[in-house]
């Protein structure tokens, strides 16, 4: 295809009559075909907040984003981490395909500064993706309107925005248009779409994310024991909580 035409067709406000019933939202391919099929627009949303509720750290919550982040940095686009929970280990990020010169870390010490930095970064048109870890700094007392502010800021900047939050908040109301619950499932990562634009997702999906070792642990008791709430159920609970 003519490159100029291809560029035009990529625009969010151009609609091809033969392909989509509605103009697709600008998205970012996640690198996981099964996940893209479930995400509205076929990928991670740009210009909107995505909440990732991981049961624990270290279950592959970043592995879920790495293919998309690697693609962004390879294209020379900037990725910013705000208040990451631990020291980032450069060789591992580089090995995951992230171009380090396109990566910036922001380490605010006070919660107020962290929220300010998050809003300013999301609003900046020069940042393609922002990863946020705010709950720890706020001692899990993130002010109620914060997500709303972040969502508005992401809309202004137009970049992808991923907010990592404790899994206990799954039932809480949120203004993020996309919410995912992440649980370990052996080598795989179980992703439950708690909320998305469009019809509710009924089933969790299992993704093969990159693991450091070729090893399949016993299915942990957390996954084996708990009955996963189905999306409609959690929506009902959300409404009650709200």
């Amino acid at each position: 295809m003519n490159p100029a035409l291809a560029q035009v067709l990529e625009r969010g406000d151009i609609r091809r009559g033969d392909a989509f019933a509605v103009a697709p939202a600008p998205t970012l391919a996640s690198g996981f075909a099964r996940l893209d099929a479930e995400l509205p627009g076929g990928g991670w949303p740009r210009g909107a907040l995505t909440e990732l509720l991981a049961e624990h750290e270290g279950i592959g919550e970043l592995g879920l984003l790495l293919p998309a982040l690697a693609a962004l940095t390879a294209a020379g686009q900037t990725v910013v981490l705000i208040a990451p929970p631990r020291a980032a280990h450069a060789p591992a990020w580089a090995a995951a395909g992230i171009r380090l010169e396109a990566l910036r870390l922001v380490l605010p010490r006070r919660p107020r500064d962290a929220l300010w930095a998050a809003v300013e970064t999301l609003r900046c048109g020069g940042v393609a993706a922002t990863l946020l870890w705010l709950d720890e700094l706020f001692r899990r007392q993130l002010p109620a309107n914060s997500l709303r502010r972040l969502q508005v800021a992401a809309g202004e900047g137009g970049g992808a925005a991923f907010c990592f939050r404790p899994a206990q908040l799954a039932a809480a109301a949120s203004s993020a248009p996309l919410r995912l619950q992440l649980q370990p499932a052996g080598r795989q990562l179980r992703v439950q779409l708690l909320k998305r634009r469009g019809p509710p997702a009924r089933q969790a999906i299992l993704l093969d994310i990159a693991r450091p070792a070729d090893f399949s642990p016993r299915v942990s008791h957390v996954v084996a024991g708990a009955v996963l709430p189905d999306a409609a159920d959690s929506r009902r609970r959300t409404r009650v909580a709200a």
């Binding site: 980032a88 450069a90 060789p91 990020w93 580089a94 380090l100 010169e101 990566l103 910036r104 870390l105 922001v106 380490l107 605010p108 010490r109 500064d113 300010w116 930095a117």
Partner: peptide, 12 residues
């Protein structure tokens, strides 16, 4: 606003 040490890049 955050101080020069609060904004970092990463290198191997």
């Amino acid at each position: 606003r955050l101080g020069p040490q609060a904004v970092q890049g990463l290198a191997c």
